[in-house]
C-alpha cells in the first residue's frame, strides 16, 4: 500500500525548532551513521552548537551480531568532545524497535558518563521492542509499517534529504 511520506527537509526544520529552546553551552550532538549523522550535521550548523559534532556507528554494539554477524563496512566512531558531564542528544533518522538507540547508549557510555542523554529523530514508525522514546520527534506515522518495509533517509548530491520506503 503506497503511503505519503512527509518532506524530510520540512521535518528537519520542525526538529530544529523543537530542540532550539533546550540548547545550552553544554549541549553536544551525536549522529548515528549514516542518516543520523547527516541530520546531526545539519542540526549542529543550524543550532550553533559549540561542542564539536560526534558520530557513531553502532555495528560493534548491535544485539543481532550473534545471528547476523558484522555489518559489511563499519564506520569509525568519532566523539571529539568530553562525554563526561555533557548533555548529549543522540540523533537518528528513524525510530523503530529502539535497538539501535540501545546500542548507541551502550557505546556512548564506554566514552564516559554523560550528565544527560536525549534522543532526537526525524520519524517514528512505531514497533518499539524496548522501553525507549524520543524527546524530540518531528513526525510520527499514522499507522505502523509492515516489518518487511524499510524506512530510510537518503541524501542527494546537493545535500537535500528525503525519506524513502524500501521493500526488503
Amino acid at each position: 500500500m503506497p503511503i505519503d511520506l512527509p518532506n524530510a527537509e520540512s521535518l528537519l526544520a520542525r526538529l530544529i525548532e523543537q530542540i532550539r529552546p533546550d540548547v545550552t553551552p553544554r549541549t553536544a550532538l551525536v549522529g548515528i551513521h549514516t542518516g543520523g549523522a547527516w541530520l546531526a550535521e545539519r542540526l549542529h550548523r543550524s543550532l550553533g552548537i559549540q561542542a564539536s559534532l560526534g558520530t557513531i556507528d553502532v555495528s560493534f554494539y548491535r544485539d543481532d551480531y550473534g545471528s547476523k554477524g558484522l555489518h559489511a563496512k563499519p564506520q569509525r566512531s568519532d566523539i571529539p568532545f568530553d562525554v563526561e558531564n555533557a548533555d548529549i542528544i543522540i540523533v537518528d533518522d528513524v525510530l523503530y524497535t529502539g535497538r539501535t538507540t540501545r546500542a548507541a547508549l551502550n557505546e556512548l557510555f564506554d566514552y564516559g558518563r554523560p550528565a544527560r542523554v536525549d534522543l532526537a529523530v526525524l520519524c517514528d514508525r512505531h514497533g518499539r521492542e524496548l522501553p525507549i522514546s524520543a524527546r524530540y520527534c518531528a513526525h510520527t506515522l499514522d499507522e505502523p509499517l509492515a516489518a518487511s518495509r524499510i524506512l530510510r533517509l537518503s541524501q542527494d548530491a546537493t545535500g537535500t534529504l528525503s525519506l524513502r520506503l524500501i521493500d526488503a
Binding site: 560493534f60 554494539y61 558484522l70 563496512k73 563499519p74 569509525r76 566512531s77 562525554v83 564506554d110 566514552y111
Partner: peptide, 19 residues
C-alpha cells in the same frame, strides 16, 4: 576495511567492545 574502526577503540575510556 573492518579493522579501520577498531583502531579508534584504544583511544576510549573503556577499551572494550561487546562483540
Amino acid at each position: 576495511d573492518t579493522a579501520a574502526p577498531f583502531t579508534e577503540v584504544a583511544e576510549r575510556e573503556v577499551k572494550k567492545l561487546p562483540l
